[in-house]
């Protein structure tokens, strides 16, 4: 199903299962994201799509299956035919390469936009402050917010906060960006400014997994569309094709509700 041609995928998700208590939210999900690919994950609320994304950078642990990012097994090391839990330090190292953008932004409220973007490189990578500041300003410029560098998150609109959050993730030079419903908490008129930044990012060749309700974005930018319902992948394919001619009844019904 991948658009890649034999090369190693950036993300490989293989038979992933995840339970919350007695409820199984992911019931054996497998998918590949090729390097530079944009995969949009859609589905009704509670379908497990956000959980799947959170498993990829191990904000959630999985109960069975395997997830590899750029060839690295997430969360474990395989030695002598057995899995070993990674140390906290190794887990943190894996997360450095995976950017995550949250529905509710989660900017650090006690730091300015600029300080938010500098935080990762300075604290985690030990980059000198002046160097990190220059790079952070470039990134704020890229998301169109250079003039808001000194503002605190509470002084920014939702759309601006989300763009700063994207810049904050990009500051770690990730190989992969995860977007967990990045526009769902925004007022309708602010959605487009965030999607524009994401469109640019996709055009620059970033590998992206995007959980979203924005079918227009999926159609225009996505290389693959995955429809998840009840913890399983129901429909997948080229977004332009599957949106024009959904094959499964459940997907058709879902589209009828969101479009």
């Amino acid at each position: 199903m991948t658009t890649g041609t034999g090369t190693r995928p950036m993300v490989r998700i293989s038979s992933v299962r995840k339970c919350f208590g007695a409820v199984e939210v992911l019931k054996g999900i497998s998918l590949d994201v090729p390097v530079g690919g944009v995969v949009c994950v859609v589905g009704p609320s509670g379908s497990g799509k956000s959980t799947l994304l959170r498993c990829v950078n191990r904000l959630e642990t999985i109960d069975s299956g395997r997830i590899w990012v750029d060839g690295d097994l997430i969360g474990y090391a395989e030695r002598d035919g057995r899995l070993h839990h990674l140390s906290p330090a190794a887990l943190s190292r894996q997360k450095q390469d995976i950017g995550m953008v949250f529905q509710r932004f989660h900017l650090f409220p006690h730091r300015t936009a600029l300080e938010n973007v500098m935080e990762g490189p300075v604290v985690v990578r030990g980059v000198p402050k002046d160097k990190a500041r220059t790079r952070a300003m470039e990134l704020l410029e890229r998301v169109g917010l250079a003039d808001r560098a000194g503002h605190y998150p509470a002084q920014l609109s939702g759309g601006q906060q989300q763009r700063v959050a994207i810049a904050r993730s990009l500051a770690m030079d990730p190989k992969l960006m995860l977007f967990d419903e990045p526009t769902s908490a925004l007022d309708p008129e602010l959605v487009q400014e965030v999607l524009a930044v994401m469109r640019d990012l996709a055009a620059s060749g970033m590998t992206m997994m995007v959980v979203t309700h924005e079918m227009g974005f999926a159609r225009e930018v996505g290389d693959d569309l995955i429809f998840i319902d009840g913890g399983v992948v129901v429909e997948r394919g080229n977004p332009r094709e599957v949106l024009a001619a959904p094959r499964h009844e459940r997907f058709r019904a879902f589209l009828g509700q969101v479009l």
Partner: peptide, 27 residues
């Protein structure tokens, strides 16, 4: 402190100690 703050900090690759010192305690 909003649990999302911890998640955002962890996603940047901060260690538990860094999350506590840089993000959780100041808030």
């Amino acid at each position: 402190v909003d649990p999302g703050q911890r998640e955002a900090a962890e996603s940047l690759g901060m260690s538990h100690r860094q999350v506590l010192r840089r993000v959780v305690l100041p808030q």
